[in-house]
Amino acid sequence: MATVARSAERAEPRGTERQDLWWLEPLSIVAALGIFGVYTFLVSTANSAYFADPYLSPMYSPCLSSTCPPSERLFPFTIDFMSLSPAYFIVGLPLAFRITCYYYRRSVYRAFFSSPAACAVPDLRRRYTGETRFPFVLQNVHRYVLYTALVIIAVLWIDAIKAFSFPVTSAVSGSAGDHAARHFGIGLGTVIMVGNTLLLSFYTLGCHALRHIVGGSVDSFHRASIRFRLWSAVTQLNLHHPRWAWLSMFSVGLTDAYIRMVAAGWIADPRILF
């Protein structure tokens, strides 16, 4: 029978007595984030088929490419830095928000750093300093990337509202029509875009940093009733933060894929025009 040291100076490395499938969660996270990462890189590099009037892919919103249709430009400038796709810059901000998100930190440290891979499973790193040193100390910028994420959410809501306004000719020929004459309507793409923006809003507005900013920083809620209400609302969303994190990530990919397929003419967008 093996002898196992239990003193303060324990034998290293130790194993785990866990008999369940503890490795399944980190493996699933690696697979999910890996697939999403590769997909995001590919569609960001493509710099095409991101707009199917009136649908704009969330990965290219706000539309900052010089190839953007004038109606989709919210800002008076474009990003065409060294011929790189503007999606690299647009996706960068939500990516920074997710990388520094407290929930994703849990998942990433577990899955990619095995620090630890699962609870009560040995940490693979011999020396551990957590988030006290570079580069992980940079995780403390989370509230700043939250501010940019809130701006992007506002832009995505504008896109979602625009997705109710269809070009006149599009119902007949499928081509972009005269922007002066448009019909109110609802297409499958509209539903997908609204759903995606809702999920992203739930995720962003349930952020732990936002919870602190709106009210968590005060010690007496009684003396700050509005902040208490805001804190309570954010807390309700925060309770399901992991769920919103995953659902919104997948919905961004699915929304982009749908718009891409419509733009490429692979599928027709079912819609009702009023």
Binding site: Y102, Y103, R105, R106, Y109, R110, S115, P116, C119, A120, Y128, T129, G130, E131, T132, F136, V137, N140, R143, H208, A209, R211, H212, G216, S217, N238
Partner: peptide
Amino acid sequence: GFCNITMCCSEVCPEHIHITDNAIIPLKER
């Protein structure tokens, strides 16, 4: 700063205290 939010403390708490969400992260934000 050593805590990297793996949330295992909340998972094992027999009193179901949300240690990470309600204590550690709010303190990190402070």
